[in-house]
Computed example of a mutant assay.
Amino acid sequence: MPADRGKTPSTPSKSKSKNKSSSDGPESPSKGVWSSGDKSLLFDHVINFGQTDWEKAVPGKTAQQAREQWKKTLLPQIRRQCGFLG
């Protein structure tokens, strides 16, 4: 009798890795964690231009990514540190 009789062959598990599609090229916006340099560029952009032209804020990030990072991360941190409630 073979030793592996009765065992089912292992099936490849579904990996959670990102499937690359044809739209994911070298020009696609970076995904994931924002570096402190990226956040600094975003902060400088808002200081100089206000909350507009998000697509020009950080190279390699989309306008939506920049806007969301400002609204959900940086602005709340600034408000907490400065004691602003509004």
Rank of each mutant, 00 (worst) to 15 (best):
M1Y: 02
M1H: 06
P2M: 02
P2T: 05
A3L: 12
A3I: 10
D4K: 14
R5E: 13
R5T: 14
R5D: 11
G6D: 06
K7I: 01
K7P: 00
T8Q: 14
P9R: 12
P9C: 06
S10W: 06
S10I: 12
S10P: 04
T11D: 04
K18L: 11
N19C: 02
N19M: 08
N19Y: 02
S21E: 11
S21G: 14
S22K: 15
S23A: 15
D24K: 09
G25C: 01
G25T: 13
P26Q: 08
P26I: 09
E27F: 09
S30R: 13
S30Q: 12
S30K: 14
S30Y: 06
S30P: 00
K31D: 01
G32Y: 03
W34F: 06
S35G: 07
S35F: 02
D38C: 07
D38G: 08
D38I: 00
D38Y: 07
K39R: 11
K39M: 05
S40C: 10
L41M: 13
L42G: 04
L42D: 03
L42W: 02
F43K: 09
F43C: 11
D44P: 00
D44R: 15
H45C: 06
V46M: 05
V46P: 08
I47D: 09
N48F: 03
N48H: 10
F49W: 09
G50W: 07
G50Y: 08
Q51F: 00
Q51Y: 00
T52E: 11
T52S: 13
D53V: 00
W54C: 03
K56T: 05
K56W: 05
A57R: 04
P59A: 06
G60V: 03
G60E: 04
K61D: 03
K61L: 09
K61V: 05
T62F: 05
T62K: 03
Q64I: 13
Q64F: 10
Q65G: 04
Q65W: 01
Q65D: 02
Q65Y: 01
A66R: 01
A66L: 00
A66S: 13
A66Q: 01
R67A: 08
R67W: 04
E68F: 13
E68P: 00
E68A: 15
E68R: 14
Q69S: 12
Q69E: 13
W70M: 06
W70D: 04
W70Y: 10
W70V: 08
K71H: 06
K72H: 07
T73E: 07
T73D: 08
L75R: 11
L75Q: 12
P76Y: 01
I78P: 04
R79A: 09
R80G: 02
R80D: 11
Q81L: 10
C82I: 14
C82R: 14
L85I: 14
L85C: 12
L85N: 15
L85R: 15
G86V: 11
G86K: 14
